[in-house]
């Protein structure tokens, strides 16, 4: 189809994955909605949908990598990808704006009406909060550190140091996984439950969505690591790596806001667990 084309844009052949991905998404949301209300097979439907989504992403993104190897990603196509990733991150920022909006609404204007909150933040019902300068501070340092290791990997890549690329990525991935494990440990030992009042709701949902984004970012970095071992990426063309790095920095910045607002400021003066 691209036989006569006289420009640098990427004109694609027909592709089954958009339809399969969308259908898998519908199957998983249908399954989830049914499982929330204990319908039979709801959970199985959701799992089937998720498997479909994973297969779709694996194939779709795999195709993009193949196209990159085939030289379809001309400079202008790479520019598209940059714009696309930046805009995607912008939309993700607005998603977190929603959660921070809820947090600041609850923390600045705590409900006066109920003994659950009692006009104070953290709410009266919360007898103790996490010590922000214990594990959360450690996690902050871990994420900041991982930001430097991913930059190390990037500079190594630019300067043709494949060993440094792999080492930097390994460290970043290990730090990312470590963050997730510490976060899970923290959740398990948290002195307040999920839900039941605004503190538990907004704390777990905001940090939980952040944690989910950390896991997604870690997976992106693992893919980059595998590709680094397979010999992908050149000092001049490595947008897959850059996208993962941008995303990782975004996740890092969101955490800094969470740490300062939710952990430090939001727990100020409360009893520490």
């Amino acid at each position: 189809m691209a036989g006569t084309k006289n420009h640098d844009y990427h004109i694609l052949p027909t592709d089954p994955w958009p339809f399969i991905t969308s259908f898998s998404a519908l199957v998983s949301t249908t399954g989830l909605a049914l499982s929330f209300h204990d319908y039979p097979f709801g959970t199985y439907l959701a799992i089937a949908g998720f498997i479909g989504l994973i297969i779709s992403m694996f194939s779709w993104f795999g195709n993009i990598i193949k196209e990159a190897r085939a030289g379809d990603h001309t400079p202008v196509v790479q520019l598209h990808q940059r714009y696309g990733m930046i805009l995607f991150i912008a939309s993700e920022v607005m998603f977190f704006v929603g959660w921070f909006w809820a947090f600041f609404d609850f923390a600045l204007f705590p409900s006066e009406l109920t003994e659950v909150v009692g006009g104070v933040w953290p709410p009266e019902d919360i007898h103790a909060v996490m010590d922000p300068f214990d594990l959360p501070l450690l996690n902050t340092l871990i994420l900041l550190c991982s930001g430097t290791t991913v930059t190390w990997a990037h500079h190594s890549l630019i300067h043709g140091d494949r060993q440094g690329l792999k080492q930097g990525l390994w460290l970043t991935v290990i730090l990312g996984v470590l963050f997730s494990f510490i976060q899970a440990y923290e959740y398990m030992h948290a002195p307040f439950p999920f839900g039941q009042n605004t503190y538990g709701s907004v704390f777990y949902m905001a940090t939980g969505f952040h944690g989910f984004h950390v896991i997604v970012g870690t997976i992106m970095l693992i893919v980059c690591l595998v590709r680094a071992y397979k010999g992908d990426f050149t000092p001049r063309q490595h947008f897959g790596f850059e996208a993962a790095a941008w995303y990782w920095h975004f996740v890092d910045v969101v955490w800094l806001f969470l740490f300062v607002a939710v952990y430090v400021w939001g727990g100020w003066g409360a009893t520490i667990h």
Partner: peptide, 8 residues
């Protein structure tokens, strides 16, 4: 969760 639930 109790984002929009006054009881919480």
């Amino acid at each position: 969760t109790t984002f929009f639930t006054p009881e919480g």
